[in-house]
């Protein structure tokens, strides 16, 4: 069993291709560092416990002792028990410092990116898709992301249904997307590449396939992509968006405009019902503009593969 554990440690440290331990951005790097620090620290604890256990089991087996050996009555010892408490306390203090520092690191703009304006992307989930709105670029995608490298990213997460969790392991850890508040996840990509992303929080039947692709490209290429989308994609309309919200899997779609214009995020709406009505019902449509471009949508959706 300990053999197995050490095998695992070897695997962990030997092949760095596990997604979480193969970071491509500063936040994931911080987290991978914390994970490795904690593994090594905990390995020390494990070795101490295993060694003590092995020593006791080998030395004090009944078969190794004379029949008339009578084990002594030993109450605890203040010194020993202080050691049992003291060393773990020191370890926990050390890990607490690491933990608190890394908490603040992952909850703020990634290190080295503080001076730039972050790219804000709204990522909202519906059963079982992700809608990515780029207010700055005024475009929207479904189930795939294009992001520029070397720029801080600020994901604004919320959900049109069950709680989901936005997770791109190689860029950083996950955070929940919920219906009644917007959460913020700070990420950045150091290198270009295609990364795997998913909803990590169980959300019903279609959960397993609730994934998305992340394409990290150099800033110039990102601008090209935005221009291309603006030329080729059709605008997102409220009716079209309502269709998208229907449960199911959609593949990758691209639109101009964002749904935030007619269906804003629940950001400043703690407890109010106004912004929620649209998400799950069809009753509140009349006070919104009606878009009349039904027929075109299906054919002009910009499919991305």
């Amino acid at each position: 069993m300990s053999f197995l554990f050490f095998t695992i440690i070897t695997v962990l440290t030997g092949c760095g291709n596990l997604l979480v331990l193969d970071p491509k951005g500063p936040q994931a790097q911080t987290q991978a560092d914390v994970i490795m620090i904690s593994i090594w620290t905990m390995l020390f604890v494990v070795i101490v416990v295993f060694a003590l256990l092995a020593y006791m089991l080998i030395k004090y087996r009944a078969s190794k002792q004379s029949d008339d050996y009578e084990p002594p009555h030993i109450e605890g010892s203040k010194v020993m028990e202080s050691i049992f408490v003291g060393i773990p306390v020191i370890i926990i203090i050390f890990l607490s410092i690491v933990s608190v520092k890394s908490n603040y690191a992952v909850e703020s703009t990634p290190e080295g990116y503080e001076d730039q304006e972050p790219l804000v992307i709204y990522a909202s989930s519906s059963n079982w898709k992700w809608h990515f709105s780029y207010p700055e670029q005024d475009i929207e995608t479904v189930n795939y992301l294009y992001i520029p490298t070397d720029r801080a990213l600020e994901f604004k997460l919320y959900s049109h249904g069950p709680i989901t969790s936005f997770w791109v392991p190689q860029l950083g850890g996950q955070k929940y997307a919920m219906a009644d508040m917007v959460t913020t996840l700070h990420l950045a990509a150091d290198v270009p590449g295609e990364f795997f992303g998913r909803n990590a929080n169980f959300s019903g039947k279609g959960f397993a396939h609730n994934t998305f692709n992340v394409n990290a490209v150099p800033p110039a290429e990102f601008e090209e992509w935005v221009d291309e989308v603006k030329e080729t994609a059709s605008p997102i309309t409220e009716d079209r968006f309502q269709e998208l919200l229907e449960p199911g899997h959609l593949g990758q779609l691209t639109f101009t405009g964002t749904h935030l214009e007619f269906s804003p995020a629940p950001e400043h709406n703690h407890g109010g019902s106004q912004s929620h009505d649209k998400h799950d019902g069809h009753e509140n449509h009349d006070h919104h503009e009606k878009h009349e471009d039904h027929e075109e949508e299906e054919s002009s959706d910009h499919h991305h593969h």
Partner: peptide
């Protein structure tokens, strides 16, 4: 002990963003 120390690892919240779920 192994289950327990991995619990300490999970308790480090920044890293938990990667372990959670």
């Amino acid at each position: 002990t192994i289950g327990g120390v991995t619990g300490v690892m999970l308790g480090m919240s920044a890293a938990d963003y990667q372990y959670h779920n």
